[in-house]
Structure formats: structure tokens, C-alpha cells
């Protein structure tokens, strides 16, 4: 994959990528450290709870999405990080052994107001199952560097 710059993203671009199947062990491990609520870490308590079984912390689902984004979309890019996320929604619970993938759509591309060597790409990122059930959506902005001006051409 050639390195991606700000100019390589266009409004309307759609990509689907990644594959992650979280185990119950992984879900419990993340939540034990970061989100130790019974329905994330205790299979017995989770059975009798609202969700009827262990579900992943929403921040874990977001982190799994981030990993798919880095591995398949921005790993080899001029990404400089993100100022934030709008409308993060956990649409349906993520349960152990579900087969997850990511989808992205480019909503806006905006050159930086003051720095001409970079710009923001606004994406809608979605986590969904192989069967197409939507788990999570977010509108995320990522700052990318522009293509360096060619030298000696």
C-alpha cells in the first residue's frame, strides 16, 4: 500500500476492512482494567442482567475499531492524530466470538485553516458484524499531512 496523504481522500469514498473476533477472555481482560461493571466482567452476574450475558465495554469496541483503522486505513499514512469524535453510538452490544469488521465513509475533506501542509478528513466509521449488524458508529476527524512537494523533478 502506498503511503496515504490528505489528498488521497475524497468525499464519498467507502472502504470496508478488518476482521476481529473478540474472545470472552479479551472482553473481560479489557473491562477488568478499564470498565469493571458486572455485565462486562462477570459471566454469572451478566446472565441475570439487562443484556443477558457478557458484553464488551463500549470503549473496548472503540479501541478494536481503532486497531482496524490503523492496520488497514491509516497505518501507512501521514496521519497526525485526531481532534475528536462526534456522535459516538453503541448501537447494539458486542458479545464474545462475534465476527467484527469496519466500514468507513468520507464525509468531508477540509484543508487546515492556517497550515497549508495538512488537512482534516471527516469519516463516518462503523463497526459491524460479518452478517451486517451494526454495532457502533462514530463521526471521526483525522488530521493528515499533505503530499510533500516533489523535489528535483
Amino acid at each position: 500500500m502506498t503511503k496515504r496523504y490528505f489528498e488521497d481522500f475524497s468525499v464519498g469514498d467507502v472502504e470496508e476492512f478488518g476482521c476481529h473476533v473478540p474472545s470472552e477472555e479479551e472482553i473481560i481482560e479489557f473491562a477488568t482494567e478499564f470498565d469493571p461493571q458486572p455485565f462486562h466482567i462477570d459471566p454469572d452476574a451478566a446472565k441475570d442482567h439487562f443484556f443477558g450475558g457478557i458484553i464488551a465495554s463500549g470503549w473496548h469496541t472503540g479501541s478494536m475499531l481503532m486497531r482496524m483503522i490503523v492496520d488497514h486505513q491509516i497505518g501507512n499514512s501521514a496521519s497526525m492524530g485526531s481532534p475528536g469524535i462526534d456522535e459516538l453510538r453503541w448501537i447494539s452490544p458486542v458479545r464474545p466470538e462475534e465476527n467484527l469488521k469496519a466500514k468507513s465513509e468520507v464525509l468531508e475533506v477540509t484543508p487546515h485553516k492556517y497550515k497549508s501542509d495538512r488537512g482534516f478528513v471527516k469519516f463516518r466509521h462503523t463497526v459491524l458484524t460479518a452478517e451486517g449488524e451494526i454495532k457502533m458508529t462514530m463521526i471521526s476527524s483525522i488530521l493528515f499531512g499533505c503530499k510533500p512537494v516533489a523535489e528535483g523533478v
Binding site: 479489557f30 478499564f34 470498565d35 461493571q37 465495554s57 475528536g84 456522535e87 459516538l88 453510538r89 453503541w90
Partner: peptide, 26 residues
């Protein structure tokens, strides 16, 4: 994630909490 942990440890009552549908303007 560490923010969530501080919320669970100090603010969220796990006996009453039913989770969250999302966050805005992060």
C-alpha cells in the same frame, strides 16, 4: 478508557447503571 475506570470507581453505581448508548462531542 482510564477515564471510564475513574468513573466506574468513583461515580457510576454498578447496581443501577444500565450502560450508555454513546457520547457526543468527544
Amino acid at each position: 478508557a482510564v477515564t471510564m475506570r475513574m468513573m466506574v470507581d468513583n461515580m457510576i453505581d454498578t447496581k443501577a447503571s444500565l450502560g450508555s448508548p454513546g457520547v457526543d462531542n468527544l
